[in-house]
Design a protein around this nucleic acid. Structure first.
Length: 375
DNA sequence: CACCATGCTGTTACCACAGCGCGAC
DNA sequence: ATGTCGCGCTGTGGTAACAGCATGG
């Protein structure tokens, strides 16, 4: 990733698509993400101009560079004079925005960066998460779990109203093109810094839908069933997170509300880099940084995690949400995705000894075709 | 409370080989 | 520039082995 567009391999990359884990030039970004409805839902943001590999989440007004969380920390450490630099959050976007719309989100974004209007822009030139929101079945009150949902731009500005149901989404702030200036210096990190991460979209239960096209499946590979999601096997993960959370609720209180905390983790996991299992003590925050979500595991309390999870969510609402979540999971398909049907076909008929493939002609104890033994 | 045995669940390695990708020519 | 060849790697499923956790004594 980085420097050159992953798609065309020609133009400098400018945009990072977390769904595709790809760095794209603006032109390819439009082309790729205008392909279908699912790709339009991909959340994209600018590419970090320092490391050229991570999604940027903040714009340093002084240095005029877009930075990922890691580079921001490195460059604006409290011990340096740079810590006083004014920085502006960089919102992510979905859909197929025009350069003008990008400029409206990112005041620093120059329309000259773009290569002109595409057919996609002319036809679909709106960025929106409304489609995603509509698809969610979660109660809006559940979404109040997250309070930092300003991360996604809503150009048509009606995100507070669920078009499908007409319900008011009080928890989702209206998009304001005016830049958010970060007044606090980066040095006062611990608790404040992760909270302004704009990349984290609606990390409540509705994430399930927002990232349905790719993330949840990957989560499901690791957390196959509901019992595991809500049961003890995740305790270790939560406990692993816990020591890093300087001001988070105690592990006991977290686990006392298993459903919610595991859902928090699940959605975070869905947001963060694809594999969590490889996280070791030697790993740095930057290694697992996905602009906030994953690094927050290391750096502090997630911004969407309310100080008191137990009291802020009515138990009826929670159980209602859990019930819907269970139903939804039930309807999902967890079939293993076979990439090469021909290989599967061969494996299906291959003779085995204790489950292992044997050479053709050798003795076997299992024949998938006729269930007989050769010896 | 600590320890141990038992049972259950989830993960991983193993095997052969067709087919794919890539470099060399 | 294009086609051919050879080599190395990948991925496929059932099973055993192993790890980890929960429970009861």
């Amino acid at each position: 990733m980085g420097y050159i567009c992953d798609f065309c391999g020609d133009q400098p990359s400018l945009v990072y698509c977390r769904s595709d884990a790809a760095c794209l030039c603006l032109s390819c970004d439009r082309n790729v993400h205008s392909a279908n409805a699912l790709s339009k839902r991909h959340s994209r943001t600018l590419l970090c101009e320092r490391c050229n590999s991570q999604p940027a989440f903040v714009r340093c007004a002084e240095e005029k560079v877009s930075l990922c969380q890691n580079c921001d920390w490195m460059g604006h450490d409290a011990s340096t004079s740079n810590s006083t630099h004014k920085r502006q959050t960089i919102n992510s976007y979905s859909g197929c925005p025009s350069s003008g719309e990008l400029s409206s989100i990112w005041s620093f974004f120059s329309q000259s960066d773009s290569a002109g209007e595409s057919a996609c822009e002319q036809e679909l030139g709106l960025m929106s998460i409304s489609e995603n929101i509509e698809s969610t079945s979660w109660d809006p009150t559940v979404n109040t779990i997250s309070h930092n949902s300003a991360g996604v731009a809503e150009v048509n500005g009606d995100c507070n109203v669920d078009k499908g149901s007409g319900r008011t989404r009080t928890s989702i702030p209206e998009y304001r093109p005016a830049p958010q200036l970060l007044d606090q210096p980066a040095g006062s990190t611990d608790t404040s810094l992760p909270k302004f991460c704009p990349q984290t979209k609606y990390p409540g239960l509705s994430e399930d839908d927002l990232y349905d096209d790719f993330n949840i499946d990957e989560v499901d590979l690791n957390l196959e069933n509901y019992e595991e999601l809500f049961g003890g096997s995740s305790i270790g993960l939560v406990n692993a997170i816990q020591p890093a959370c300087s001001n988070a609720a105690s592990a006991d209180s977290v686990m006392s509300n298993k459903t919610d905390s595991i859902l928090y983790f699940t959605t975070k996991h869905a947001h963060s880099s694809l594999s969590f299992s490889g996280l070791t003590g030697e790993s740095s925050a930057g290694d697992y940084q996905d602009c906030g979500a994953s690094s927050m595991l290391l750096m502090g309390e997630p911004p969407w995690c309310p100080p008191c999870t137990e009291s802020s969510i009515p138990s009826a609402t929670r159980s209602d949400a859990v019930m819907r979540y269970k139903e939804k999971k039930k309807t999902r398909k967890f079939e293993k995705r076979v990439r090469y049907a021909s290989r599967k076909a061969r494996a299906d008929v291959r003779k085995r000894v204790k489950g292992r493939f044997v050479k053709a002609g050798d003795a076997y104890d299992y024949d998938p075709l006729n269930q007989t033994r050769s010896c």
